[in-house]
Computed example of a mutant assay.
Amino acid sequence: MSLFSKMDTIILRVADIKAAKKWYEEVLEFTSSYESNGDHAIVIFPIGNGPSITLYEWQHDESHSPASSSYPIFFAENIEEVHTKLTSRGVETSELQKDGSTTFFTFYDLNGNKLEVCYWS
Rank of each mutant, 00 (worst) to 15 (best):
T54H: 03
I11T: 09
H40E: 11
I53K: 00
L28P: 00
K22V: 06
T84W: 11
N37F: 14
W58F: 14
Y34K: 09
K18N: 11
L86K: 04
N113G: 03
M1I: 10
S88P: 08
V117P: 01
F45L: 03
D39E: 12
T87M: 11
S69C: 11
N78M: 06
A15V: 04
T87F: 12
S121V: 13
D109W: 05
E92A: 14
G38P: 00
F30S: 00
L86G: 02
F45G: 00
I79A: 02
T54L: 02
Q97K: 15
I11K: 11
I44S: 07
G112F: 03
S36D: 14
I53A: 00
L55N: 00
Q59A: 06
N113Q: 09
I10C: 12
S63R: 13
T93F: 09
N111C: 10
E62H: 06
L3P: 02
H60G: 07
S70I: 13
P66H: 01
K18M: 07
E80W: 11
L3M: 13
I42E: 02
D16K: 04
Y34N: 09
E95A: 14
F104M: 05
H40W: 12
F30G: 00
L110F: 07
Q59L: 06
L12T: 00
L28M: 05
A67G: 14
G48K: 13
K22W: 07
I79P: 02
A19Q: 12
I17M: 01
G48N: 09
S2D: 13
E29F: 11
G48Y: 08
M1C: 13
S52I: 06
E95G: 10
S2Q: 14
I47P: 01
T103R: 13
E35S: 07
S36H: 12
H60E: 14
H83T: 01
H40M: 11
A76P: 06
K18Y: 11
K85R: 15
Y119R: 13
H64A: 08
S5H: 13
K114A: 03
E25N: 08
